[in-house]
């Protein structure tokens, strides 16, 4: 539509904040859309001075990075917001944390620094921890070994266009098993890509290679996201902003 609404255009973005948050407990059942709505409302309740897009239905400037699937908890979800007034990142973090439901915790908030590149470019890998209640840890260990030994493990993945065969093996860069209280725990580092390989797909792969059948539904937690380096560690994606921003001690408005 060519027409423009009356009145002045919305104020420009003067500051970008990058936020890491966790979804825990019951809210692991929230979908990406559910969390997005909750976040937008929390930003309003917390009176964070958001920048808005222009047009007849202005939207607050928020960009989400790949969300953990519904049913999975996460300690490392990322979002970037645009503000129309400069604010102290820590004050925004605290206000937002207070305004969000108890099971969503805002863990970190840093100002995006010019020249450090986009957040999306700093995330290509997830670190997962999957609790498998009622499963014998030794059984899991054997399954993980069989999986790692295989070159190709084909599993059927549910997509929008029905079931599709994918190879789950190459995305998993490392995996191991440990014992928890009443459960076995699967630890793994998984590269993000298309089609995405998610914990459910890896469990399907373990069923395929070792007939692993956990008696109860799994509880997955994404523990970290970031760029996988040559040493096999996943780097904190907010670190470049923190480092670049460190010497800068400007005054900030409080929220």
């Amino acid at each position: 539509m060519a027409r423009q609404p009356d009145g002045p255009p919305p104020p420009p973005t003067v500051q970008k904040l990058r936020i890491r948050y966790a979804k825990r407990g019951r809210l692991r059942f929230a979908s990406h859309r559910d969390l997005a709505r909750a976040l937008e409302r929390a930003l309003r309740r917390a009176r964070v001075p958001m920048a808005f897009s222009a047009g007849f239905s202005p939207h607050p400037k928020i960009s989400y990075l790949g969300a953990a699937p519904t049913g999975a908890a996460s300690e490392a979800e990322y979002v970037e917001i645009g503000l129309s007034v400069r604010c102290d990142p820590e004050a925004v973090r605290a206000a937002l944390d207070a305004a969000l439901p108890e099971d969503v915790a805002v863990l970190d908030c840093v100002e995006a620094q010019e020249g450090t590149g986009s957040l999306a470019d700093r995330i290509d890998t997830s670190v997962w921890r999957v609790e498998l209640p009622g499963l014998d840890p030794d059984e899991l260990t054997r399954a993980v070994e069989a999986f790692l030994a295989a070159d190709v493990v084909t599993v059927a993945k549910r997509t929008k266009n029905g079931l599709k065969d994918i190879d789950a093996r190459p995305s998993v860069t490392s995996a191991s098993a440990s014992a928890g209280v009443g459960c076995a725990i699967l630890h793994m580092v998984v590269r993000q890509g298309t089609p995405a390989v998610r914990p459910d797909d890896v469990l399907a792969a373990l069923a395929a290679v070792a007939d692993l059948r956990p008696p109860l539904p799994p509880r997955a937690v994404r523990e970290a996201q970031g760029r996988l380096d040559d040493t096999g560690t996943v780097a904190d994606p907010l670190e470049p902003d923190r480092t670049a921003g460190a010497p800068d001690q400007e005054a900030h408005a409080t929220v």
Partner: peptide, 14 residues
């Protein structure tokens, strides 16, 4: 973990 839209059953609304 086995059903559609589980969020509707967990409560904890604002």
């Amino acid at each position: 973990a086995q059903i559609q839209k589980p969020i509707q059953y967990v409560g904890g609304e604002l």
